[in-house]
């Protein structure tokens, strides 16, 4: 069994919203996961890790947040400083760096080298390093590389999908009889 990129993106948006991001930021989280998974990187797992951290972080440390930093970089269109500094779940920053100026970048943190561009993500780094919870990150311009696209989210992400489902469920209203009868405009027979 595998998932379509579209359904994993939609799930990611709902999960991010369920964990408390604004709708607009949740859309960015969905974009980030879809972009990572479309190049075979574990975006769903990274988002699930990030939401766990965010959910348990009383101060909501936005200065360490990859999605807030990523959107700020993309919005301002000014490019990155070489020293990005400490950041949580740095893999989630990669899609924003890849889609900002300059067109080709290399992003690094201990044990990881990512070649990033709009054309994708290329890396030889091991999975556990890609999913590092927090790291000191660097970035520098580099020639863009072309990455192989992935059209599906593989079975191996089942656990991450399940974790995202738990957050997404927070956006669903509890079922009540009033809601069941009135909310969809029902109450008439369909057996005709």
């Amino acid at each position: 069994m595998s998932w379509s990129l579209g359904e994993v993106k939609a799930l990611s948006v709902k999960a991010a919203r369920g964990a408390g991001l604004s709708w607009g930021m949740a859309d960015e989280a969905g974009f980030a996961v879809q972009w990572l998974q479309s190049f075979g990187a574990p975006g769903a797992a990274a988002l699930a890790d990030y939401l766990d951290w965010r959910d348990n972080s009383p101060q909501r440390l936005f200065d360490l947040c990859p999605i807030h930093l990523g959107t700020a970089i993309m919005d301002a269109d000014r490019g990155l400083p070489e020293q990005i500094g400490r950041i949580r779940h740095p893999l989630l920053l990669a899609p924003f760096v890849a889609n900002s100026n300059p067109p080709g970048m290399v992003m690094e943190w201990p044990g990881v080298v990512l070649a990033l561009s709009e054309a994708g993500l290329v890396t030889q780094s091991p999975l556990q390093n890609l999913l590092m919870a927090e790291a000191e990150c660097m970035a520098r311009p580099a020639a863009p590389q072309v990455a192989a696209p992935f059209s599906r989210v593989p079975e191996t992400e089942a656990g991450s999908i399940e974790r995202l489902n738990v957050y997404a469920a927070r956006t669903y209203a509890p079922a009540t009889e009033a809601s069941r009868m009135g909310g969809a405009g029902a109450g008439i027979t369909d057996n005709d």
């Binding site: 469920a169 956006t171 669903y172 209203a173 509890p174 079922a175 009540t176 009033a178 809601s179 069941r180 009135g182 909310g183 969809a184 405009g185």
Partner: peptide
């Protein structure tokens, strides 16, 4: 969206 099969619904803000 209701948790019941994720059915999209429209509610009354000041009653529910």
């Amino acid at each position: 969206v209701s948790e019941e099969k994720l059915e999209p619904r429209l509610g009354e803000r000041f009653e529910e």
